[in-house]
C-alpha cells in the first residue's frame, strides 16, 4: 500500500475511534464504566487505561520520529518488518484469540475514575495531530522501540498501524464490558 492511502485509512480509523469513545463512554458514570463482565475480565475503564499506558509510551516516540528532519520521501509503499508483522498479528481486532498482557500494562483491579476517559481523548488529539507530520516523514524507518523489548525497533508506519489496531481491539472489548444501565433495589 502506498503511504498516502495508508495514512488516510489510519487517520479515518483514529477519528472513528475518538468519536466512538466520546459517544459511548464519555457520558457514562463510573459505576457503568467499572462494571466487569466477570471476576477476572477487564471493565471498560480498565480497557481504556490499558490503552492509555500504550499511548504514554508510543506517542512520544512517534512524535519524535515523525518530526525529525522532514525528508518528503515521496509516496513510497509502506513496508513491514518481522517484529511489525508479529505485533500486528497479535493485536488483530478480528482475531478471537486472547493473549496475556504484560504485568505493568495490566490495570486489573486498579481503582479507576472517569479521568481515564479524559486522558484517552487527550491522547487521541495528540495521535490525530501526528497525521499532519506523517506525510513528510519516511514511514519505513526503523526507529520506534518495542515497548516490551526496547532493543527491537518497529518501522514508524507499522508502529502507527499497530497502535490503532491495538486500540480497535480493546475498544471492542470495552464496548462488550460496559454495563447496560438497569435499576436494582437494595433493601
Amino acid at each position: 500500500m502506498d503511504a498516502t492511502t495508508f495514512l488516510t485509512q489510519l487517520q479515518q480509523q483514529a477519528q472513528t475511534q475518538q468519536a466512538l469513545v466520546r459517544a459511548e463512554f464519555l457520558p457514562l458514570d463510573a459505576a457503568l464504566l467499572n462494571a466487569k463482565p466477570h471476576a477476572t475480565g477487564w471493565s471498560a475503564l480498565e480497557c481504556l487505561e490499558h490503552l492509555n499506558r500504550y499511548c504514554r509510551f508510543y506517542l512520544p516516540h512517534l512524535e519524535k520520529a515523525l518530526s525529525a528532519a522532514p525528508i518528503s520521501p515521496g509516496n513510497l509503499p509502506v513496508r513491514y518488518s518481522w517484529i511489525g508483522r508479529k505485533s500486528l498479528a497479535v493485536v488483530d481486532p478480528s482475531s478471537p484469540r486472547k493473549h496475556k498482557t504484560l504485568r505493568h500494562m495490566n490495570p486489573h483491579n486498579s481503582r479507576l475514575t472517569t479521568a481515564v476517559v479524559d486522558e484517552f481523548l487527550q491522547h487521541q488529539d495528540r495521535l490525530l495531530s501526528l497525521f499532519a507530520l506523517a506525510p513528510k516523514a519516511d514511514l519505513n524507518q526503523k526507529n520506534i522501540p518495542v515497548e516490551f523489548f526496547r532493543l527491537l525497533r518497529m518501522r514508524t508506519g507499522e508502529a502507527l498501524e499497530f497502535l490503532l489496531a491495538h486500540q480497535q481491539r480493546h475498544l471492542q472489548q470495552a464496548l462488550r464490558a460496559k454495563a447496560q444501565p438497569t435499576i436494582s433495589l437494595v433493601v
Partner: peptide
C-alpha cells in the same frame, strides 16, 4: 451503605450506587 449499628461494630448489610433504588425496607 446500609448498616446496622451494634454496640461493638457497624454491620454493613448493603450498598447503593448510581441507578440503585434504596430504602430502609
Amino acid at each position: 451503605r446500609l448498616y446496622l449499628p451494634t454496640a461493638h461494630e457497624e454491620i454493613c448489610v448493603g450498598f447503593a450506587y448510581p441507578n440503585t433504588l434504596i430504602t430502609a425496607f
